[in-house]
Design a protein around this nucleic acid. Sequence first.
DNA 1: GCGACAG
DNA 2: ATCTTGTCGC
Length: 220
Amino acid sequence: MDIPPIPPWPADEAGALAEQKRLRGLLEDGPGDAEYRLVTGVDVSYGEERLIAAAVTIDTATMETVEESTREGVARFPYVPGLLAFRELPTLLDALAGLKRVPGLLVCDGHGLAHPRGFGLACHLGVLLGLPTIGVAKNAPWPTTEPGPERGDQAPILRDGEVVGATLRTQTGVKPVYVSTGHRTELGAACRAVLALAPKHRQPETTRRSDGLGRRLLRG
DNA sequence: GCGACAG
DNA sequence: ATCTTGTCGC
């Protein structure tokens, strides 16, 4: 798929913060009744000197993988909490460029709106690509309320009294995942998509498959 | 000053 | 993210 030109990359944290503030104003809402057929999951694996981004597209009608793409890259930005996108995004875009089909939804391994400044990796990727994105993280952005114990149970993630995401139990009795919208998506539709993508495991299949693909390539 | 902090 | 053994369960 075609990847738009990347804006000038910030050289330091101050520049990164300014860029987040700038791109935040471009965020758009999405339809609450969306159903997604082609969904792509992206993830990054780290070696000592290199990192590998992997993208896997699933047809939700069959849950079969329909396309894969991987790309190797170098970290040009340190890991700073709240600035993860600046570390992973360039290589992620490279991997996405290797896909032929344009997905209806992109599932990111990290946060979207549920971010200290309301602009996590999922928002950033979505705005740059102009595609619907959501974030599904394994850890909470800050202390959150536990959802009920059953699969499908959820509780809002609040930031200054505003709902910016949801803790979602994808498997009964298992630690929840942390869902938030990125770009052009709505939280309810996002949670429904994640539940459909996670029929047997805690994490959505999109994330599990892209993660597996990336780390297999990283080793041998 | 010290520890925490998506991945 | 990654460094790591065994173990319980489907």
